[in-house]
Structures are given as structure tokens and as C-alpha cells.
Design a protein around this nucleic acid. Sequence first.
DNA 1: CGTTATGTTGATAGCCGTCAACATACGTGG
DNA 2: CCACGTATGTTGACGGCTATCAACATAACG
Lengths: 242, 242
Amino acid sequence: MQTVLEDGHKTRCEMCAIRHRAVCGALSNDELAAMNAISRQRILASGEPILSADEEISWFGNIVSGTVKLTKLMSDGRQQIVGLQFPPDFLGRAFKQRSPYFAEAATEVELCIFPKPAFERILKEKPGLELRLFQDTLDELDAARDWMLLLGRKTAAEKVASFLHMIARRSPMIGCAHLADAGDIQFQMPLNRSEIADYLGLTIETVSRQIGRLKADGVLQLHATREFSVLDMDRLARISGI
Amino acid sequence: MQTVLEDGHKTRCEMCAIRHRAVCGALSNDELAAMNAISRQRILASGEPILSADEEISWFGNIVSGTVKLTKLMSDGRQQIVGLQFPPDFLGRAFKQRSPYFAEAATEVELCIFPKPAFERILKEKPGLELRLFQDTLDELDAARDWMLLLGRKTAAEKVASFLHMIARRSPMIGCAHLADAGDIQFQMPLNRSEIADYLGLTIETVSRQIGRLKADGVLQLHATREFSVLDMDRLARISGI
DNA sequence: CGTTATGTTGATAGCCGTCAACATACGTGG
DNA sequence: CCACGTATGTTGACGGCTATCAACATAACG
């Protein structure tokens, strides 16, 4: 399958913002052309479901922009976010018919999706792609285990500080960073208070109180409920409890 | 590299208890012979460290018997077990110089280890082996996320019940199952109370109290501190909180 | 401008952690 | 085999952290 290069125009893949950071980075130009032919863009509004748990999965995709949350639900409604994904993360569970969790757009999300059979064919032909997905999965596993330490052993104050530190640190990659004066880091929070609580194993009230305390202590500043400035990253790191 | 078959004798790999369930299952007979040539057995006593966090890793391995715990430590001593591994799990972090966590023998452990360079060479030559490791890693990631729900949202009673249910269910695979009369499941607990607490994000006192409650409720029976019988698996599952 | 969703703050309660005492199991050496 | 010391596990009393419940404030939206 070859892409038709419209004279003077570039293909979507060639213009792609995450071209080099995504799994597609493992592909040559020819292979990318094949990818371009089977991929299409999909825009999701904030809150829109992407995968239901146990739903048959018919496609994979890359996150081009926005934040995706992976959640697990208990029968009585208790909820836990078990993963956050940002550009250029890969979306989808290879080698399984059904996803073991829900995926949902936390903000507006732009995806680049591929039909499952076509992607699996390319995967079989391109060992470099599989290797890349494998490495990404190992990194996700490391991140999940870091989060297990947070959930099992950290206090509410440490949890909230750890979360804010992580978002602040990664805000340029996430695409939610704002210009800020001085050395402080300013960003738009991709989650609401309820989602932060579900990510940290807390309640919204506790999250709100801990953010308030960090604000009172001069570590944070809020320009709006979702507009954060970290005034003292070092102190935030120290409160996170290493 | 070819294995010399001593006449009449079988190689260690051919006699291996986990031959077909381990990653080696992805190998042909010839490839297994190559594996046999580079592997060697290692026995560890309970409590012996296997990998220190940030330690340079020079080998990979399979767990042949016993239980290995992966732990993370905070600077003030708080500890969290972020993974338990049983036969025929693979041990080691591919594509990284240093392990992001400690690994320690929870019981006596028998490993089959391979020098890292030799294993990585076989890995490059055998795409099936990499695929198998990839699939195992995805399963580990799913398990880690299940545990995140437990750590973030379950009560102490639900945590202990979930843990006991998991061990009881997997006891035949783990190799700690005992013969039991009637339909109840009997097994030897591979962790002490302190380790159970570190796996569940609780204290030893809370673990002890919850086990006591399950005993009083007739769900469990203890023949010794580490000899458990589950009398009612369905009720244990129900208490686990789905 | 009214209505709803989201976030904050306060009062109270309860689960689980902390501290302490005791019990039991285990290993060592006499 | 028993005495002893140590490690491990159990049980009780109490306190604190965080959940729960409730009221209010603010933002979002038509």
C-alpha cells in the first residue's frame, strides 16, 4: 500500500506533531506511508468514552493531543484511575480481545487511529515496531509500580504533592504548559478535582483541602480552579516524600 | 552453540519443571539447547536479596520454584511490595541498565539464570521470545492495575480477602498447595504478616485482625500461622468486593 | 439571570495506624 | 531435652487522619 503524495502537499503523518516521539518513530518513510494509508484522525470531546471495559476492541491509536484516563470500577461505584496517558502514548491492549479497563477522554483528545487487523499486519512485518511497543509497556509498568507505592504508603499531603509535581514536570510534554514569568511552572490541570481524587485514592474534599494547604504555604498559586502555578518545585518535591 | 547430550541423560532444560510454561516455551528444541548451554541454576534462601534498586543488572532469569517479591522503599523506611512473582515468571528488566525496584526471595527460591549479553543475543535472533516477554509484560501491567484499584479504593477487610483469594486460587501454580479434604483449598502462605501488610498497604496489626475476623466468620481455618485453609471460596470472593 | 456542575470549607465520625503488652514459634547452646 | 533469647504473630486501648455529611461559594452554561 503506497500513499499518494499530493504534489506540494505533505501527508498527515509527515505533518504529525508526535511523528518522532510516537511508536511511528520506529518506522521508515516507506512504512510510515503505509501507516498513513490506514490511519485516520478522531477528535473526542472531554468526558467521551473511548473504550468500555470488556468491550471488543477493533482499533489501536496514538494520542496526538489531550489526556486520556484509564479507570477501573467496583460494583458499588467506587472508582480508581489506573493510568493517565498523554501524547505521544499508544492506546490499546495488544493480544487481548477485550480491554481490562475503561478509557475515557479527560480533556478534548485528538487520536490517530488504525484498524486492528491492518495494524497487526504491520506489527508482524516490522519487528522494530513491536520492540518499541514492548519498551513503552515496560515503562508503563514501572510507572504503575511507582503509583502503587503512592497509593499504598503515602499520606494525602504526599499524594497531592506527588501528583502536582508529576503534572508540572511533564506539562510541556503533556501540552498543558503556559508561559510563566520568573522560574515558576504554570499549567492547565487536565483533570477536575473528582478525577484527581480517583487517581490518588482520596475524596474530592481531601484533595481540595490539600491543594488549599499548599496554596497557603506558598508552594502553589491558583489563577483559576484549573490554572496552577508552582512557585517552589523543590519544596513540592520534598513534600512528595521521595 | 550445541548442547552435548550425555548418552541416556537429559539436559537440565529437558527435565525442567517449568519448561513449557516459561518463556522458554517459545523456543524450539535447538534453541532450547542453546539456552541450556548458557543457563545455570541458582538457589536462594528466604530473605536473600536478588536485585538492589539501581543496581547494575548482569543477568536475567526464570523462577523455577518459590516466591519473589518486588519492593519499593521510601527514604523514611515505608515500604510497598509492588509485585509478587511465582514460577514460571521471568525475572529482570529488559532495556534498562538498572532495576527500578528491589527484588528479594520471599521463600526459598530456585532460579534458572542467563548472562544478560547471551540472553540479549538470543532475544535478537528469536522474535518469538521477545513476543512472549512482551505478552507477559502486558499481563503484569494488567495485574499491577488491578492492584492499584485494591490499594486506592478497597477497605482493609476487602484487601485481605482479595489477597487470600488470589493466593488460594493460584496455589497450585505457585507450588504452595497442600492436599485437603472436602472441597476446601489448603496452602502454605509464602509471605509473613509483615510482607502481607507491605503488599496491601496496611499494618501487620490490621492484617492480623482481619485474618482473625475471617477465621471467626468461618471463612478460613489456620493450622499454623502459615498454614491456611479456605473453607468458603465464594464468600471470600464476595468479601473481596469484586 | 436562573440553573446546574464544580469546588471549598466546616463539623463529625469511623477506620485504621500507633503504641504497648502479651503469646507463640523458632533456633541456639548448655 | 530443656532453658533462653529472638523473631514473629495476636490482642487491646487509644488517637489521628481522612471519609462522610452538609452548607455554601464559585464557575459554567444556556
